[in-house]
Design a binder for these strands. Structure first.
Lengths: 346, 346
DNA sequence: GTTAGCACTCAACAGTGTCGAGTGCTAACA
DNA sequence: TGTTAGCACTCGACACTGTTGAGTGCTAAC
């Protein structure tokens, strides 16, 4: 993969990638020599370009056009040539000022983050809220809606709220409900939702609960409420900004882009993959096997609040993305959001 | 507005509108006589068409093209010519079967409704969840997150849950919090959220509360939590389906459509307008003054659950929309959702 | 009031030639 | 041996052309 490239080839590849990033048009040998002073003639550059093409870093759309970087070319550029500068203090504070989180609920924060990232990058912002099941149990409340229906409200340590309507035994009265919630709040306190699930199903199978009716009801109620995985919430913002990019100027490409951004399920899958990683992750083109990302690049980073509520945010754009600009934005935003979420709980 | 049209003109206008709805192309006099047997020659039809054009019901994109209905033409068609057939039992049950609501939370139902309506109509589904402030108070709960931060959870009579994080006096202990919530739950029970707001601010200004510290805290806590209007949640589904329609085949039109569908704020404004109306409402083209709907038509209907939780759902599409198909879908879906919501609470 | 005929208009389309950017190859040069 | 100049070639973009066919408005006849 990381084949040897001499310095001149590297310089030329870098020049081509960068010129292509800013122009979105095939780069010819003349253009290279004009814009950068390598002290080389176009003919020489052509030779190098032919080599780079053979190695798979470049391709030409047709005989007499310039060349454009392949996915592999971009990959090499990012891995070996791109130097990600740190943001200056001024830039950081400008970025910080773009966001206004004060007094916002989690959902609003997620939305705002997507909007700002999209605005800054001119691509599309993606934000996946923390998974509920990765959080820590804090409190459970029951609200009676009608005879047989209960609204169960879970609150996590990090302030995430989830509610669900379940069917329940009609004979339960308010006092019993209160006892049940008191019991559960004591019993489950401090466990992760996953541990809660495990504990509940373990206890339910134990024989002794059979003799304690109330306890059994408590367990089965909360079990019913936690039963199925909640679909992750995902926020997509700035789709129309991306339509301005020349790679999406044809109707077909536009349609495909919108379809891609509309299939939340796929996006969730995609963002899920970076959940375990630390720092900024970059997915280029079709690299990620099972999902069709052909033509797109995705830059993500995780945020969390030490209490285990892990979410992912990122920017999706064309492969020809301004990585040097977007990567710091995503990176710093993730840090920012983490800090905000932490402040919320402590 | 409703100028007199003799029967022949009406028939021809109807034919043109319907042919145009299905073909999306300018309709010529020949085509009319071929597809419908009016026993008229193309020349006669041309004369009628010229009259209709003069009256503003038709226009021609250029000299030698057929004619297309104007917004006014569509308006006339809908007001006077379109007969909305009731759905047959079979269709109703087919429609009912398209939706699977069982065990779903409100948010999931909203999403599902949008998805199905969009799929059935081939246009874009819009659903606006019930406004929280139009609901009836049921219960309030406080959860302490960190010293100074409280999570307030409101539950409405209809099972809507809303939560918000507020700053609170650090000296409040758990016992006091419980007293406060008990007090509020008794005091506010059965009031609409609007009434609750009014009551809270009225009581807060009364002098006597000054002597009752706990009560004052209770009031100011819940007041802070209800302070600002929650932005309405809106669900948009099937944007990419609409891109298949010929009126959105050009990149410009696509961009405009996506921008329109992305501006949730505007869509909320739009759906808000039909909140007071009963039954199906139809907005055609740029008719609705302040919002730029040029080229789009919107069909909406409200749903509710007798306890005042009113939401709006609908379909947005090109002016050249298949009204006879979409109107019954929207109408019946609204009824269906109302029924489902009612079942949820009683 | 209705119709046939006719001249006219105009978008769509296919074919043509020119222009310019870019390429690969070869031979000459340092 | 690496670099460069020169040259023939390719191909998309663009402007121009003529043709076709659908549709119109007008007029005169039925």
């Amino acid at each position: 993969m990381a084949e040897e490239l001499n310095e001149r080839s590297q310089n030329i590849l870098e020049a081509i990638v960068e010129d292509y990033i800013s122009s979105a048009e095939p780069i010819g040998s003349r253009a290279i020599t004009r814009r950068h002073d390598f002290n080389l003639s176009p003919a020489t550059v052509r030779n190098v370009m032919a080599d780079l093409e053979e190695m798979g870093f470049l391709c030409s759309p047709h005989t007499s056009a310039g060349r454009i970087p392949t996915t592999q070319g971009f990959q090499y550029y990012i891995d070996s040539l791109l130097q990600i500068r740190d943001l200056s203090k001024a830039e950081k504070s400008r970025l910080r000022n773009s966001y206004r989180f004060s007094g916002m609920k989690l959902e609003d924060i997620m939305q705002e983050v997507g909007r700002v990232m999209s605005g800054l990058s001119q691509y599309t912002g993606l934000v996946m809220a923390p998974k509920f099941s990765s959080t820590v149990f804090r409190q459970i409340e029951f609200v009676r809606l009608s005879q047989g229906r209960l609204l169960v409200i879970y609150v996590s340590e990090s302030g995430l709220v989830q509610n669900k309507i379940i069917e329940a035994d009609k004979s339960l009265d308010d006092r019993q409900l209160e006892q049940i919630s008191n019991y559960l709040n004591k019993e489950l306190n401090g466990l992760s939702i996953q541990e809660v699930r495990k504990k509940l199903s373990a206890e339910l199978t134990e024989e002794r609960v059979l003799y304690d009716r109330l306890r059994k009801q408590a367990l089965s109620l909360s079990c019913a409420a936690l039963q199925d995985e909640v679909e992750n919430q995902i926020y997509v913002s700035g789709a129309s900004l991306m339509l301005e990019q020349p790679e999406f100027s044809s109707p077909q490409q536009m349609k495909r882009l919108i379809q891609t951004l509309e299939s939340k399920k796929m996006l969730i899958d995609l963002l899920d993959r970076s959940q375990d990683a630390q720092g900024v992750q970059i997915f280029i083109g079709s690299e990620s096997a099972c999902v069709d990302l052909e033509g797109y690049s995705l830059i993500t980073s995780n945020f969390s609040n030490q209490k285990g509520a892990i979410g992912t945010l990122g920017v999706i754009g064309p492969v020809r993305m301004d990585y040097s600009q977007v990567i710091p934005i995503v990176d710093f935003t993730a840090q920012l959001v983490s800090r905000v979420l932490e402040r919320e709980i402590e």
